[in-house]
Design a protein around this nucleic acid. Sequence first.
DNA 1: TTAATATATAATGATTTGCTTATATATGCA
DNA 2: TGCATATATAAGCAAATCATTATATATTAA
Lengths: 114, 114
Amino acid sequence: MLKTEIDMDKAAIILKLLGDKTRLTMVKLLENHDCCVCEFVEIFNASQPSISQHLRKLRDVGVVKEERKGQWIFYSINKNNDYYPFVEQILKQLPDQEDKLKALEEKGARITCC
Amino acid sequence: MLKTEIDMDKAAIILKLLGDKTRLTMVKLLENHDCCVCEFVEIFNASQPSISQHLRKLRDVGVVKEERKGQWIFYSINKNNDYYPFVEQILKQLPDQEDKLKALEEKGARITCC
DNA sequence: TTAATATATAATGATTTGCTTATATATGCA
DNA sequence: TGCATATATAAGCAAATCATTATATATTAA
C-alpha cells in the first residue's frame, strides 16, 4: 500500500485550521464521538454562531462532515478525506477530552437522539 | 518510559505556528540540516526581515534554536523541547524538501562554513 | 578603524481571524 | 398553521498576523 504524502500547501492549511484551541478540541472530541452543534456550544461555553463558524471552517477543508438527524446536525470526522491520516496522527498525540463529554452527560445535556 | 502528553493549549500554539507554509517548510528543512538565515532568504525568495521574524516565532516557542557560527547564525531543531516528539511526528508525514537545498547548492549559495 | 556582510528589531500598514449581534432557514410539535 | 428549537449566515469590529521599510547590532576583512 502506498503511503499518500500530503503536500505542503495542504498540510499548512490543515495545521493552521487545527491551530486554534477550540477547533483542535472539537476535532479531538470528534475522534471518538459524533457531536452536534449545541453540544459544542455547551462544552465550550461559546456562542452558537462562533461554534457554527468554527465547524464551517473545518468542513470547508474537509476535516469534518455533517449529517442532519432530525432537528440536529451531527458532525463527525471525515475519514474519506485524503488528509485524514495526517489529522489522525496529530490527534493521537493529544490528551483525550472525555471529561468534557462526561460533564455534559452529568448536566443532562448530551444529545442522544435516534 | 512514560509518553509525555502534550497539553491542548501548547499543541494549538505549535500547530498554529506550523500552519504557515514558510515556517512549516523551514522546520521540515531543519529536520535534516541546520540552516542559516541567508539560506532561507534564498530558498524562499523572501526578505531577510520576514525570514528573521518567522525564525523568531519558532524560537520563541522553543521549536528551533540558534547558534552563531562566525558571521552566520545557524538554526536547528530544538530536540530538547518537551514538544519535540509532537513536532517530529508531524514532520515525518511531510514530503522532504531536499530539492530546495539542492537548488541552493547548484546556485553555490549553500553556506558550509566551519 | 572603516566597509561589507549577516542578522535582528522597530514601526507601519494591509489582510486575516474570531468574536458579537442580528437575521434567515429548517425541523418538530402543539 | 404557528411557535419553539437548532443551526447557518451576514455584517461589523477589535485583535492578531505577516509583509515591508528603515534602522540597529555584531562579525569579518581590508
